[in-house]
């Protein structure tokens, strides 16, 4: 996964969660993974340039999804996996651990 793909993916997950749990909680959860820094507080206008990572690709995505899983369980994971599926139709299973794909 390239940096650009990772940023696009993380952005898509955060924006989807914004529609579900609201902007405040979606951004707060992303930042509290400790691996994502966001320099904007407006999820609607969030851009790739405003997201910075400090971890391996899979770790960033996994921690982000797990942080949302705490709220609605596997239902939150399903929503994120759907975004993965849209972005990586053929190999989305390689992006996150199998434990999240139960």
């Amino acid at each position: 996964m390239t940096d650009e793909q990772l940023k696009r993916l993380v952005l898509a997950i955060i924006k989807k969660q914004t529609q579900i749990i609201g902007e405040n909680l979606a951004l707060e959860r992303a930042v509290n993974t400790g691996l994502i820094q966001i320099s904007s507080k407006d999820a609607r206008n969030l851009t790739i340039e405003q997201i910075h990572f400090s971890g391996a690709d899979n770790e960033v995505v996994t921690r982000l999804i797990e942080s949302y899983r705490e709220i609605f369980g596997q239902a939150s994971v399903d929503v994120c996996v759907n975004i993965l599926r849209e972005n990586f139709p053929n190999d989305f299973r390689t992006v996150i651990p199998q434990t999240l794909l139960v």
């Binding site: 899983r69 705490e70 709220i71 609605f72 369980g73 596997q74 239902a75 939150s76 399903d78």
Partner: peptide
């Protein structure tokens, strides 16, 4: 069809 869980499970 949904797999609701997590901290909101009881509320839902």
């Amino acid at each position: 069809f949904s797999r609701l869980g997590g901290k909101m499970k009881v509320g839902l």
